[in-house]
Design a protein around this nucleic acid. Structure first.
Lengths: 140, 140
DNA sequence: TACTAGCTTAGATATAGTCTAATTTATTCA
DNA sequence: TGAATAAATTAGACTATATCTAAGCTAGTA
């Protein structure tokens, strides 16, 4: 795990590299299964130093704002997070809500007339359906 | 407002056309500003008959499951809903969280190899940035 | 050393949504 | 028709998720 790279990316975003903040970032880079805030909180606290719930949420907010982490809202469930490494899209399971990565492919932008006076920052594709596990279950 | 069309679409989905359910559907067709569940609840109760909060949520869930209504999860905010009329994409404002419609354009599907054993139901594009109001504000 | 800005903390609070158990309403079919 | 059944509604308790508050801590700087 690239300790130095994490420090530098935090520094480059004007965020101090505190133990708690580093732990969140490192956890996300080690676990690319799109954990929830609660899972991240639990995960970083399996190691010392212990981090509070509020700090975990604060740091996730800061990291998302800095563009280092992506937040994925899922209908009716807790938000998921992942470190922005390789660009990719997300597949969200209709049944279990799990979020999985799909290899990135190009997203067409809307026409200028459709966009109007809005200021576009990014386009993402969300794919929906059943993940492998849920697709293989016969029950409705 | 097309009363008969609402009745038929509910009927076609195996949902009884109750006054409360009809009211939710009619409200969504009249207000295409992507209201939250709380706004819908308040909106339908400006008229009689009164509907409970639980019923509003129940009916929204049923309508989403039936494919008549789309739910849009927004990071850190309440979910938004809209009646599925003309197909379109969504623009979500980074600052105020408002959801706006963007004229539909074709979404490329992922390759079979990228998709793997998953069962794809739909692809949607989410556009992000600043809406007209927020883009015109100078404050950071 | 003191100042300052940034960060962390526990716990209270807020917001969004679901559940329960009783009741009401509609449909079926004998 | 009317008994039986199924579907829907309800108030309010409850759960889950996330934010806020106010106090204290830490690192960088003068």
């Amino acid at each position: 795990m690239d300790t130095e790279a994490i420090k530098q990316s935090l520094d480059g975003s004007g965020l101090r590299c505190t133990p708690q903040r580093f732990a969140v970032m490192a956890f996300l880079m080690e676990h690319n299964q799109h954990p929830t805030a609660a899972e991240i909180f639990e995960g970083v606290n399996r190691l010392d130093p212990r981090s509070s719930r509020a700090t975990t949420y604060n740091n996730l907010r800061d990291l998302v704002q800095a563009g280092l982490v992506r937040e994925v809202a899922v209908e009716g469930r807790a938000a998921r997070f992942d470190a922005k490494g390789m660009p990719h899209h997300h597949f969200i399971c209709d049944r279990c809500g799990n979020v999985e990565d799909i290899a990135w492919y190009d997203v067409p932008k809307p026409s200028v007339s459709a966009l109007g006076p809005r200021k576009l920052r990014e386009c993402e594709i969300i794919l929906r359906g059943l993940c492998r596990q849920c697709a293989s279950k016969k029950v409705s």
